[in-house]
Computed example of a mutant assay.
Amino acid sequence: MGTVIAEISMSADGIVAGPDTSTEHRLGRDGDLLHQWMFEGTDADAAAAAKLFDGTGAFVLGRSMFDVGIDPWGDDGTFRKPCFVVTHRPSEPVVKGPTTFTFVTDGPEAALTRAKAAAGDGNVVVMGGGTTMRQFLRAGLVDELRLHVVPLLFGAGVRLFDGPVGAHVRLERTAVSETPNATHLTFRVLS
C-alpha cells in the first residue's frame, strides 16, 4: 500500500488561492502566481513538481477545485490517473481521456478508501483545496505533507490553515529544497 500525501502550493502567509475564486479566476485573482515555480522555475523546482506524479496511483480533490479546474485541465484531464472528488453534490463520473473523476458523497474516509483501491501499491495524493486538505489532516488520514511555499505575501484569499486541523498535528521535516521560486518542504505526519 502506498503513502497518502497531501500536497499544495501556498504563499508565505498561507494563501492557497487568491480572492474571488471563480471559473474566470480559478485560483482567485493572481492565484496563478502560486504555481509559477512549476512552469518557470529551476531544475530543482521541476524535480519537486515531478514528485506530484512519481509513484502516484490516484488523486483526491475537493469539489471546488474540480469545478474551477475541469475546463483548463483539457481533454486528457491532466492527472491521467483516477481522481476522487469529495463533495456533497452527487454527479456521474466525468471521463477526460485517461482521467476519470469519480464523485464521492460520503466523506473523506470513503474517498480515500476508493482512491487506495484504485492506486493499488501507488501513492494517493490529496490536493486542494484548503478545506479538503484540512478535512484529511483533521481525520488523521495523511502520512506526508508537501508544502511549496512561494516567496510572496498575498494578503487576502483562501488560507490553508484558516480552520482547525485537530488538537495538534505534529510534523517531522524529512526534506527541504530551496530555490528563488519556492521552498519545497516535505514533512512526515506524526499525529
Rank of each mutant, 00 (worst) to 15 (best):
G128F: 08
G157Y: 08
R114N: 08
D30S: 11
G157Q: 06
F154T: 01
I5V: 15
R159H: 13
L152T: 01
V165E: 09
D162K: 05
R26Y: 06
V142A: 09
A17H: 01
V158F: 05
V85R: 10
F59R: 02
G163F: 05
L33R: 15
D32H: 04
T131G: 09
A167S: 14
L27G: 00
V169T: 15
T21Y: 00
P108Q: 08
I8Q: 03
T183A: 15
G130V: 05
I5E: 04
K116H: 06
A6F: 03
L152R: 06
F79K: 07
R159S: 11
T131L: 08
T183Q: 09
F84I: 10
V85I: 14
H168D: 14
N181D: 13
A46H: 12
P180A: 06
N181K: 00
P180R: 01
P93N: 15
G57F: 02
S22V: 08
E109K: 14
R188S: 12
M38L: 08
V176Y: 00
E24S: 14
Q36F: 00
I15C: 04
P151F: 11
F66L: 12
L152P: 01
M10C: 12
D54T: 12
T174V: 15
D143L: 10
V189D: 06
A156N: 11
R134H: 03
D143Y: 09
G41T: 02
F53L: 06
T3W: 07
F66V: 11
G57Q: 04
G18D: 03
K81W: 00
A12P: 01
W73T: 04
F59H: 12
L52M: 11
G55C: 06
S191K: 05
R63W: 12
T179H: 04
A46P: 00
L33D: 04
L61N: 02
F66A: 12
L27D: 01
G41H: 01
E7K: 09
T78L: 14
K116F: 00
T87D: 12
R188Y: 00
K116V: 02
P19Y: 04
E172I: 00
S91D: 15
E40L: 03
H88P: 03
S91T: 09
T132R: 05
A117H: 07
V68I: 11
V176A: 13
G130I: 03
A17K: 01
M133V: 14
T113D: 12
S64Q: 14
R188N: 09
H25F: 14
R26F: 09
M127L: 15
L160N: 05
E178R: 14
S11F: 02
G14Y: 04
V150C: 06
L27R: 00
R29Y: 06
R159C: 05
R26G: 06
V4R: 04
M38F: 02
K96T: 10
A156F: 01
R146I: 07
G166Y: 10
I70L: 13
P82Y: 11
A47G: 03
V125C: 11
